[in-house]
């Protein structure tokens, strides 16, 4: 399936228009426009400090962009620095799952409670219902046996899979991944990527910041190259085999042949 096939009549899941974001006087992002259709997988690559994390964080208002607008599920969450009212914003955030580089599992909760706490407190489920839902999500990622463990007792790969399950247990429509395998030992990267691939195959809309080129090649419908703005975008094939921009070329060289 290519992006264009599955998108013809549907409404975009996420739409960014002319986004700009500054920290103090430093303009980190400018003139970013992006449309992500349902079930599309977009991979973002780019050098360190190019604003990839900041862009993702803008998408659920962990950062507030001063310019431009972001629309998710047909609802404008921010327009020229003005946020949606707090209540509606929180409700919308339930549909946007975020997976962090450093996992950020709730350290005082068991694996089961990490996944169940959202449904229980935010989706009004009873404890039994929420735990049942959590168990099914955990079983799906192969962690059924670790439900009673605490985050500190898990490997990095397991932590990240729990973090993905936690996000999925909300009514998630879009998943944002910020270098989900960056903090992992090489032998643990695979298990996390596998969960992400399965998710993509199920039709989840995903925006993934990653330097795992294999994943991008296999799963991405579109690859964006960032450096303060989107300097180039296209299918993985186009970007990896035939990069147009000089900065894309040098960036790809730097990650494909380190040292």
């Amino acid at each position: 399936m290519s992006a264009s096939e599955k998108t013809s009549q549907e409404k975009p899941m996420l739409e960014i228009r002319d986004l700009g974001k500054s920290f103090g006087s430093v303009r980190v992002l400018h003139d970013i426009s992006l449309t992500v259709m349902p079930s599309q997988v977009v991979v973002i690559i780019g050098p360190s400090g190019s604003g990839k994390s900041t862009l993702l964080r803008c998408c659920n208002c962990l950062e507030i962009p001063q310019e431009g607008s972001i629309t998710i599920c047909d609802k404008g969450i921010v327009t020229d620095g003005v946020l949606l009212p707090e209540k509606e914003l929180n409700a919308l955030r339930m549909h946007v799952g975020m997976v962090f580089q450093s996992f950020n599992l709730f350290l005082h909760l068991s694996v089961l409670d990490n996944v169940a706490v959202g449904p229980r407190k935010l989706r009004g489920m009873s404890r039994a219902k929420a735990e049942e839902l959590a168990r099914s999500h955990l079983a799906k990622i192969g962690l059924a046996e670790r439900v009673d463990a605490y985050p500190a007792m898990l490997s990095g790969g397991q932590k990240q899979r729990v973090a993905i399950a936690r996000a999925l247990a909300m009514e998630t429509r879009v998943m944002l991944f910020d270098e989900p395998t960056f903090a992992l030992d090489p032998e643990l990267v695979g298990e996390v990527l596998q969960v992400m691939k399965a998710l993509a195959a199920e039709g989840m809309t995903m925006i993934v910041v990653t330097h795992e080129m294999g994943f991008a090649r296999d799963v991405a419908d579109e690859v964006l190259v960032m450096d303060g703005t989107i300097i180039e975008h296209g299918t993985p094939q186009e970007i990896f085999s035939n990069p147009q921009h000089a900065r894309t070329q040098s960036f790809l060289e730097s990650i494909l042949s380190p040292g």
Binding site: N60, K87, L92, G97, M98, F100, G118, K121
Partner: peptide
């Protein structure tokens, strides 16, 4: 990161 994870799943600041 704990606060960010909680907020990004839809919790209010108070929650």
């Amino acid at each position: 990161g704990q606060m960010e994870a909680a907020r990004s799943m839809g919790m209010s600041y108070g929650q």
